[in-house]
């Protein structure tokens, strides 16, 4: 009831201001929404057209569904079908990172919340620092390390580095601290539950919302990641889709006039289709998980 009243008061706020401002605000919000979706609509529609039609027809016109298939088939001509390998690479690297990162982060967050291990505060502070420093800042130093331990050009290097998930540890720590009462652990311990079982039988079954939050952020952070795999995986057969897309830019004349004509049928629709394969999964995940984005980014400061 109180919540309804609150909502009503929020909703009536602007109506009490002048009608002019209401129209202005609404108009601007809608305008920005249209501006936001136009690039994605162009990207989705580009592979439906023939190369010439991308320039000749209206930028947002639809061609045919058959052209998507044609563009995909043409992509297979590039470097003996390496495109398919890139799709598979992207899928299995990201899946491995999501699983590893989610498992390690949820366990670490649980330990920080349910135990009194030594250096707990130092671990928390280092986690927060690592979380706030952009991963790109460490890419060259990580290259130096990987070169020294001979893990260059091995997918495991990207998977391991990307599985360091301090943001996930922080989210888990906050989740376990705020949703599972300490008394529950204590009574389970009195009943003879050891700490492994405390995690697997008590904490984990109560943390599916957390696991989905961790998987969401791990996925969006890694699916389109460019810098790290670009540096650590120089061989074409180890590329991910984003690195492969960059490779298509500079090795075909589709959008780079500097490259001479080739016999491979890679033109703008083919390049756009490669872009669609990267952007669409992440867009779908964003659209169905936008609440997770807000909840995750504000975790630890807003008490629900």
């Amino acid at each position: 009831m109180l919540k309804n009243l609150e909502l009503m008061s929020r909703k009536t706020k602007l109506r009490q201001e002048s009608r002019f401002w209401t129209y202005m605000v609404n108009g601007w919000l809608i305008f920005f929404a249209i501006v936001s979706i136009i690039p994605m609509i162009w990207l989705l529609l580009a592979p439906s057209k023939e190369d010439a039609d991308i320039t000749n027809r209206h930028p947002l016109a639809f061609g045919s569904f058959g052209n998507y298939v044609k563009a995909w088939n043409n992509l297979q001509f590039f470097d003996n079908g390496v495109m398919f390998t890139w799709v598979v690479n992207s899928l299995w690297y990201t899946a491995s990172i999501v699983v590893l990162a989610t498992v390690t982060a949820s366990m670490a967050g649980f330990v920080l919340s349910a135990s009194n291990i030594r250096f707990k505060r130092s671990f928390l502070i280092s986690t927060l620092i690592t979380m706030l420093v952009p991963p790109m800042a460490l890419v060259v130093p990580i290259f130096v390390l990987m070169d020294a331990i001979s893990l260059m050009d091995r997918p495991i290097a990207v998977i391991l580095v990307s599985s360091l998930y301090p943001f996930g540890v922080f989210l888990s720590y906050i989740y376990y601290t705020t949703t599972i009462p300490k008394e529950l652990y204590e009574s389970a311990r009195l009943d003879g539950c050891n700490d492994f079982r405390l995690f697997t039988k008590i904490a984990l079954p109560l943390s599916w919302p957390l696991i989905s939050l961790l998987a969401f952020f791990a996925f969006i952070g890694n699916w389109a990641n460019y810098f790290l795999p670009y540096i650590l995986l120089p061989s074409s057969e180890n590329f991910t889709l984003p690195i492969g897309l960059g490779f298509l830019f500079y090795s075909t004349p589709a959008i780079n006039p500097g490259v001479g004509a080739t016999s491979v049928p890679i033109y703008k629709p083919e390049i756009a289709l490669a872009g669609v394969l990267i952007a669409v999964p992440i867009m779908i995940v964003f659209l169905i998980s936008q609440k997770r984005l807000v909840r995750g980014m504000l975790a630890g400061s807003i008490k629900e």
Binding site: L29, I30, F32, A33, I34, S36, I37, P39, M40, W42, L43, I220, A224, N225, Y226, P242, I243, L245, G246, F249, I255, I271, A272, G275, I278, A279, V280, I282, M283, F286, L287, Q290, L293
Partner: peptide, 19 residues
């Protein structure tokens, strides 16, 4: 509106360069 605003976030890195 919120759904529309989040769409460009899917266009990052190499795809952003293309778009």
């Amino acid at each position: 509106l919120r759904m529309a605003y989040i769409v460009p976030a899917a266009i990052s890195g190499a795809v952003a360069v293309l778009v």
